[in-house]
């Protein structure tokens, strides 16, 4: 969905503006999600059991260009849902998200990967899905293979022959090769060894130098601390705390160790 920027009140230095964002959805909590089960239930006059999930509640947030934002929080805090919403994958239930720039995402590992096809074919497929032309992505394929540290010739081998590390490295390499304005990463930095992690960090710092924006969801607090300029702590769909990445990760770590929220945040 694209709109003329003149019609939108979006400061030019912002990469993402989130206004009063709420995201809810319904999930089927039946153990058997089958038509047969639904018909059996209907024959007994029962409905399929549904639960409404309030994943994000009335959130406001501005993310300027050139920042690296870390998002921390427990499972079910709404971090991944928020990332999908910023990427346009899951539209809001209420509120608005305005994004200024091209987004590249790595929210599910092994994006577009068909194990029977070669790495090259899969890279083309992943690139096309993210909106690049075939020619654009084909020109970047060798660069992606180099960045992902694939051994010689592996780029033309079926992906099913790749190790899990290679698989993750290629996915990351594809995401950063798109030269995005905004890069969204959800637990994507766990792929690869220490050397690749260092390489990934360097690449991300380069992106930031070019005024590109990165949003990272990670349970690896050290990664957030090392890489992010700022962080938010999400809890039950709301921003519990925001600020300097080191400060936020410390607070969150304390919560993880003690198991109770800081006294000034108990209202959440």
């Amino acid at each position: 969905m694209k709109k003329n920027r003149m019609l939108i009140d979006m400061p030019a230095d912002l990469a993402v503006r989130i206004e009063d964002l709420s995201i809810t959805y319904k999930i089927n909590v039946d153990t058997k999600k089958t038509l047969k089960n639904a018909i059996m239930r209907a024959s007994k006059g029962e409905k399929v059991r549904m639960r409404t999930v309030e994943a994000v509640k009335h959130m406001n947030l501005d993310i300027p260009h050139g920042s690296v934002l870390g998002i921390v929080g427990a499972n079910g805090a709404g971090k991944s849902t928020l990332m999908r919403s910023i990427a346009g994958i899951l539209p809001p239930t209420e509120g608005r998200i305005t994004v200024n720039g091209k987004i590249s995402t790595l929210l599910a590992l092994g994006v577009g990967f068909n194990p029977a096809l070669s790495g090259r074919d899969n890279i083309i497929l992943g690139g096309l899905a993210s909106g690049l032309t075939k020619e654009e992505i084909a020109a970047k394929t060798d660069e992606i293979a180099r960045f992902a540290d694939l051994p010689d010739g592996f780029i033309d081998m079926p992906v099913r022959t790749y190790s899990s590390g290679m698989y993750g490295r290629v996915a990351f390499a594809v995401a950063v090769a798109m030269t995005p304005d905004i890069l969204l990463l959800d637990e994507a930095l766990s792929a690869g060894d220490a050397a690749f992690k260092e390489k990934s960090f360097l690449r991300m710092r380069e992106l930031v130098q070019e005024a590109r924006t990165i949003v990272i969801v990670s349970h690896a607090l050290q990664t957030v601390k090392d890489l992010c300029t700022h962080a938010i702590w999400m809890h039950k769909g709301q921003i519990l705390a925001k600020g300097d990445a080191g400060e936020i990760t410390e607070k969150y770590l304390e919560f993880l160790n003690v198991g109770t929220l800081p006294s000034n945040l108990e209202d959440f």
Binding site: M1, K3, D13, G88, P92, V99, N100, K102, D181, E210
Partner: peptide, 21 residues
């Protein structure tokens, strides 16, 4: 604007996307 590393950056992206209910 000036970032944490002290570099002046041009915020040039021109693709505006709006996601609404």
């Amino acid at each position: 604007h000036v970032n944490d590393l002290g570099h002046v950056k041009e915020a040039t992206p021109s693709l505006i996307q709006v996601f609404e209910p």
